[in-house]
């Protein structure tokens, strides 16, 4: 036993990696299908969107990056499906360089036309506005000064949807996707405080503690990564990839916790062993 514990303290990290890979693969090959209970932030997220009056304007700020795309995509897809099933207007813009491509990829998966939405009339996509919080502020203050054309080069004044929309004053709801944990501050400072716009957030699991600080006063609700996506899929009855990713994460996290426990056993054995020697 003592020999095993000393070996444990010097375990090769490749064994940890191999063990983790095996545990991540298991639920992908054979899904566990464990029950998921819908949390309050997700329920609020659904309620805010489903209670939007007809003709409401929803702005979507895409701030994800390709490295985090797999984490945020399921939640975004569930949100898009929900929004397009209601008679609301949808305007998307990007604050990350990867945003336009990721946004186009997701919209091609959702296919707004299948929900009876027409580009330019019901939804529009704008490209990248660099500058972080300044871009968020610029879009809130004056859309026409931020963008002269949409992502496809159509002048903004030729887009019917934009004819009566030019600032946060004409917007009913902003949904921000962010993976830099402090980026939720941008919308709170530039949209919620000056214009009192309703704000919903979509983020990764690791940034959830940050947006939770603004919930429910400044941020009306949020989807915390893939578990949030899974909950949304269940609540809105929109089957998607969230459940699959959450399933894979189930066993993926187990080795981390297991090795923390084993690491501590080895640590205490070493520590108390030294004290006994003294």
């Amino acid at each position: 036993m003592s020999d095993f514990l000393s070996k444990l303290d010097r375990i090769d990290r490749r064994w940890l990696y191999a063990f983790t890979i095996i545990l991540v693969i298991i639920p992908i090959v054979s899904p566990l299908g464990l029950p998921v209970k819908v949390s309050k932030p997700t329920r609020d997220f659904y309620n805010v969107i489903s209670s939007l009056p007809e003709g409401s304007v929803v702005v979507y700020e895409e701030g994800s990056i390709s490295g985090q795309y797999d984490v945020t995509r399921a939640a975004c897809l569930a949100t898009f499906k929900l929004i397009f099933s209601y008679p609301v207007k949808f305007i998307a813009f990007c604050d990350s360089a990867d945003g336009p491509v990721l946004l186009k990829d997701m919209l091609s998966m959702v296919d707004p036309e299948s929900y009876g939405k027409e580009y330019g009339e019901d939804y529009v996509i704008f490209g990248l506005a660099p500058g972080g919080e300044t871009a968020t502020a610029s879009f809130a203050t004056d859309i026409r000064k931020t963008y002269s054309t949409d992502l496809y080069g159509t002048p903004i004044d030729e887009i019917p949807l934009m004819s009566e929309i030019n600032s946060a004053e004409n917007v009913d709801l902003i949904i921000q996707v962010f993976v830099g944990c402090y980026n939720c501050d941008w919308v709170v400072r530039q949209w919620v405080v000056p214009y009192n716009t309703k704000y919903l957030g979509i983020t990764s699991e690791c940034c959830t503690p940050m947006i939770a600080a603004y919930y429910p006063a400044s941020c009306k609700a949020y989807l915390p990564g893939t578990i949030g996506a899974t909950e949304m899929e269940i609540l809105a009855r929109l089957p998607g990839e969230g459940a699959t990713v959450s399933d894979a994460k189930n066993l993926g996290l187990i080795p981390m916790i297991l090795f923390i426990i084993l690491g501590n056993i080895a640590y205490f054995r070493k520590r108390f062993g030294k004290e006994e020697e003294k």
Partner: peptide, 19 residues
């Protein structure tokens, strides 16, 4: 509001040049 709109849109243009 007009002045702020101009300043923030200039910042977006400057940020584009940094790329």
């Amino acid at each position: 509001g007009e002045i702020k709109g101009s300043f923030t849109s200039w910042a977006v243009i400057i940020a584009s040049f940094t790329i």
